[in-house]
Amino acid sequence: MQSTARPCSCAELGSSKHFSANQLSCCYGLLYSRSEADLLLSECESKFKYLSKEQSRVKVYGKWHDIPRQQCAYGDPDISYKFSGAMVSSQPWPEFLSIVRDKVSALCGCDFNFVLVNRYKDGIDYMGEHQDNEKGLDPQAPIASLSLGRGRDFVFRHKSVRHRSRHRPADSDNLKIELRHGTLLVMNPPTNNHWYHSLPARKQLLGVRVNMTFRKLKVKLPNATPSSKTLLDPRCS
């Protein structure tokens, strides 16, 4: 699988690449220079308030597990995110993170209202294979992933491969991208409905990595009744 030559939707990213395959569409490139990314990582390390181990457990196949990394979330008022049996409530946006959010939102053409932050202390910490397709997410919005610190491999695997389907579609080979310091990866829909992704352990690697995934969560209309359906915020283009 190779990146195409055509420009991705995030045209302002430095050295941008567009990756496409069977139901996969992603663009990747440099958002912050080395010096800018260094300053931003330093600010993250001093200001982010991570959840305790008890607060950040997930349920997998009926059993609760500690996650192999630190986690916290920031977002608009009264927004929370549920995944793997866990409910993560958002903290108010710090000023520096609001600036990052606005920059990413402008690039993607979407007003993100939530960010999930994961901190990997070294290569031992990892993210297991999963899909970001929870019901609380706006299915028409992209997910934008900002990486700071130690570069790590990010692996996509098509659901037919993971489930060992006999009918494996064409152009569904695994895709690996090294997410480097200061880069942004944008996963456009319907990528997360058809592809799993992971950040495998690399035990020999040293150095902290902080990742921010900006998301658009569904919101309810003001004065909605219990019988009202949850509607999507129309601000996402």
Rank of each mutant, 00 (worst) to 15 (best):
162 R>L: 09
139 P>L: 09
211 N>S: 14
158 H>T: 03
174 N>D: 08
144 A>M: 12
166 R>Q: 15
127 M>N: 04
141 A>R: 01
157 R>M: 05
227 S>A: 13
217 L>A: 07
225 T>Q: 14
142 P>M: 04
114 F>N: 13
183 T>N: 05
130 H>P: 04
115 V>K: 14
139 P>V: 02
218 K>C: 08
186 V>T: 00
189 P>W: 05
158 H>F: 12
157 R>Q: 12
177 I>G: 09
179 L>S: 08
216 K>V: 03
206 L>Y: 14
221 L>N: 14
183 T>W: 09
183 T>D: 02
191 T>F: 01
206 L>V: 10
145 S>R: 05
123 G>P: 11
185 L>V: 05
182 G>P: 08
178 E>Q: 15
204 Q>N: 15
157 R>C: 01
109 G>F: 02
105 S>K: 08
150 R>L: 02
122 D>F: 02
181 H>E: 06
207 G>L: 12
152 R>P: 00
215 R>A: 10
156 F>V: 01
137 L>G: 10
161 V>F: 12
192 N>Y: 07
212 M>Q: 15
184 L>Y: 06
192 N>Q: 14
135 K>Q: 10
207 G>I: 14
200 P>D: 00
138 D>E: 03
111 D>A: 09
184 L>E: 10
226 P>F: 06
110 C>R: 11
185 L>Y: 02
156 F>L: 03
180 R>N: 04
171 D>Y: 06
175 L>F: 00
139 P>I: 05
169 P>I: 00
147 S>T: 13
223 N>M: 07
207 G>T: 09
164 R>G: 11
209 R>A: 13
136 G>T: 14
213 T>P: 12
205 L>C: 10
115 V>P: 09
121 K>T: 12
186 V>L: 00
190 P>V: 05
145 S>A: 10
106 A>W: 06
148 L>T: 03
202 R>V: 09
110 C>Y: 04
204 Q>G: 15
147 S>V: 09
212 M>W: 07
104 V>I: 15
155 V>I: 04
141 A>H: 13
187 M>V: 01
105 S>I: 00
175 L>H: 00
224 A>M: 10
155 V>K: 07
176 K>T: 14
190 P>Q: 04
132 D>E: 13
178 E>P: 10
193 N>S: 09
205 L>P: 05
143 I>K: 02
140 Q>Y: 14
101 R>H: 09
134 E>C: 11
109 G>L: 11
125 D>M: 07
